[in-house]
Design a protein around this nucleic acid. Sequence first.
DNA 1: AAGTGGTCTAGACCACTGG
DNA 2: CAGTGGTCTAGACCACTTA
Lengths: 243, 243
Amino acid sequence: MSIAARPAARRTLPPYARVKRQLKSLLAAGRWAAGARMPSEAELVAEFNVSRMTVNRALRELQSEGLVERVQGSGTFAAQRGRVSARLTIRDPHAEIAERGRAHRATVHVNREERATAVLARALGLPAGAPLFHTLIVHEEDGVPLLAEDRYVNPATVPGYLAVDFTQVSPTQYLLEQVPHWDAEYSIEARCPSAKEAKLLRIPRTEPCLVVVRRTSTGGVPVTFARLVHPGTRYQLEGTFRS
Amino acid sequence: MSIAARPAARRTLPPYARVKRQLKSLLAAGRWAAGARMPSEAELVAEFNVSRMTVNRALRELQSEGLVERVQGSGTFAAQRGRVSARLTIRDPHAEIAERGRAHRATVHVNREERATAVLARALGLPAGAPLFHTLIVHEEDGVPLLAEDRYVNPATVPGYLAVDFTQVSPTQYLLEQVPHWDAEYSIEARCPSAKEAKLLRIPRTEPCLVVVRRTSTGGVPVTFARLVHPGTRYQLEGTFRS
DNA sequence: AAGTGGTCTAGACCACTGG
DNA sequence: CAGTGGTCTAGACCACTTA
């Protein structure tokens, strides 16, 4: 046998991956219009000669990547085209800084109960004027401010929130422990900081910041609404994806 | 039977979800240190009285959410704590704008072959001075610039790239069709635009921009290196996640 | 009622890791 | 070598949608 036969390439793709790859190619090539119905699991079973669990896995993963939508009892549908789903990892600031071997310090600027303004009430699904918890914490790495974390919390879901010592435990970490299962929506944008934020972060008002606005809920009940402001020169989000 | 028994709550969670939830809670509570070994599939099978496929699914999903790492032949290990995995959807600008019912226009400012600088050569895994394709395209929505897309492409992977009419087909769309299976790394940061970018986007140099830098490869071969600059006031990224 | 996806199972074979 | 994860299968039951 020639030693040059197969340098280091992987053998054959496993069946579920082959199904996935084929469907991905067809989706990318526009085989189905957005929203159009795709072959059923049974049809794919016949076409690829694999078991239903195998095509099911392929389709489930395509769904989790946002490439198809599936509706029980109805079918599998092509998602909007030209869409790439990426995974973004959001770290707890304390853990992230500690991992780099730097010193993390959190300064608590606000930690109190307030009454919900109309906007906040809507974001947290509470009546206007309802009590809610508010914290404003600045995280520093080796004395350099990296993040201003302005957060509102629904008291009903995390009653002990205000009693936590946030110089020791970050809100993210505490909330992850208290409410392990979330749904969230977030948006990321570039903005100049408000005057207050600039002062807290000790940057000029003209310095671009990465602003992450996040709203989380658990089982349909809103939990927290947070605005995370990172100085653009000191911080960036990173991620990977596969398509 | 009382009709008030169960208003609208969902029934019992399916077994794989219960396994997942339990492990998530324990992970969040710090039951295993980062990198520590977690119970094997066989142990979880015994503990939860489910089949191996069921715990396998739970663990696979936790892995895809970045909460555990799995090594064949070795075991399942807790990932770093305080980590939340989010899904970010990156849309093709043409499709995104069209979907809003707005007019999309792409202006091609650069479309040529160039020689790789040292930095670009490294990013694309080419020797310095190697030829590569360069496009610089500005996307407008109803006449307002939304994105400056500065992209370098490895000619070996997409030889026909320069011949495409990018006023009709966006690079993203074309590349998705040509190279359906990617790996990518990206970073997101807030920056002021360069003088050239400010001019292209018709914004002041002081306006914060969301800058996405993305490097993609297929099967280990680099394909493209892109810098996407969005005016902060006109664009934001959005996403969802579940934990 | 028929079709579709959601899920579970019991057993199986393989590849890889570790001692 | 034993233990671990990676994957497949054939059949099953259920819930939901559609007609």
